[in-house]
């Protein structure tokens, strides 16, 4: 890991040295917990829409978890279990690695000088994970789902990379903490709105969620999810919520001023803002129908790539003028 050299403390070890370790230990607990809340809210909205009381929906993630834990794993003939399980376990791991560079309050678990590149690296690993999930079970619908995700990735990845660059250019740094401190006066969601919008859409896209869930579409009998059962299914469904939470959490230092806010401590503000971004993502998932990847490609390359490039141009000129 590219950990920066820590300056020596003259007074021996302090509590501050253990703070990153503490944050790292809390990540695998807090991220799934937020995922549970988000899954419950989504299910509550769905049960309200179906005419059932909302509490049925809120209880659904817990009941579904218990059900899948007890369910016997269905085996598939000719499945490549190694690659399949790698894809399943990898989603949650990728989510935790993404959150590693999010500053909770003052302290990220890992204060990487190249935090933005780190994020991009992990989000590209999601390409491999979703495709492996499609390939693993030796099923036609799953395989088509995996290919659909890659086709979708070609549409969203470049706009996402440019959208990530806009805050970095505005702050003049790839370190996430520097991007947070550059937003003391104006949040980047205000000064770079196009990048924030593209980032939000891309989070839904790399999580194969909502309008971008063609890879697990109902027209494919579940696509990449089709053959999953028991613990494997739990890991993938839970992992997808974790990836959504991680994407929402990373939006906070990028565009929403990090832990900045009145009264409450910074760590609480990070979680509150993460939940707000998740609420927007859930509303997006409930309000917009699934879009097929072949339609997304043109939107991504004809509209979003020029839009994000224009955004970077404006930001770069503003930064150059500001520094001059």
């Amino acid at each position: 890991m590219p950990l920066p050299a820590t300056p020596p403390h003259p007074g021996g070890t302090t509590m501050a040295e253990f703070a990153p370790l503490l944050v790292a230990v809390l990540i695998p607990l807090v991220v799934p917990a937020l995922g549970f809340i988000a899954a419950g809210a989504d299910a509550a909205l769905r049960s309200r829409a179906l005419g059932a009381p909302a509490r049925v929906g809120w209880a659904r993630p817990g009941r579904e978890t218990l059900r899948l834990l007890r369910q016997q794993r269905r085996s598939v003939l000719g499945a490549d279990a190694l690659l399949w399980r790698t894809g399943g376990v990898g989603l949650a791991v990728a989510a935790f690695l993404l959150v590693l560079v999010v500053p909770v309050g003052e302290t990220p678990a890992a204060d990487l000088p190249l935090g933005i590149i780190w994020f991009t690296t992990i989000d590209v690993a999601l390409w491999a994970l979703w495709w492996l999930l499609g390939w693993g079970p030796n099923g036609a619908f799953s395989l088509i789902g995996g290919y659909r995700f890659l086709a979708q990735a070609l549409a969203y990845e470049l706009p996402l990379m440019f959208a990530l660059l806009a805050p970095a250019v505005a702050a003049g740094s790839l370190r996430v903490a520097d991007i947070v401190s550059a937003q003391r006066e104006v949040w980047f969601v205000v000064s770079t709105p196009a990048a924030a919008l593209v980032y939000l859409l891309s989070v839904a896209a790399f999580s194969a969620w909502g309008p971008f869930s063609a890879a697990s579409g109902r027209d494919l009998a579940g696509g990449v999810l089709a053959e999953l059962s028991g613990l494997d299914r739990l890991l993938v469904l839970g992992g997808r919520w974790c990836v959504l939470v991680a994407g929402a959490a990373f939006a906070v230092p990028l565009f929403l001023g990090g832990g900045g806010g009145p009264l409450l401590p910074a760590a609480v503000w990070v979680i509150v803002k993460t939940l707000l971004v998740l609420a927007v993502l859930i509303a997006l998932g409930r309000g917009v129908p699934v879009i097929l990847p072949q339609r997304l490609a043109e939107v991504g390359w004809v509209i979003l790539v020029p839009l994000t490039l224009l955004q970077i141009l404006i930001v770069a000129v503003a930064a150059a003028v500001g520094r001059a």
């Binding site: 590219p2 780190w118 690296t121 590209v124 390409w127 390939w135 890659l150």
Partner: peptide, 19 residues
């Protein structure tokens, strides 16, 4: 750091497409 991370990034992306 940069060369290491970009190697990982490019190669995962490349292998996902190459598969």
């Amino acid at each position: 750091d940069f060369i290491g991370l970009v190697t990982i990034l490019m190669m995962i992306m490349e292998m996902a497409i190459m598969a």
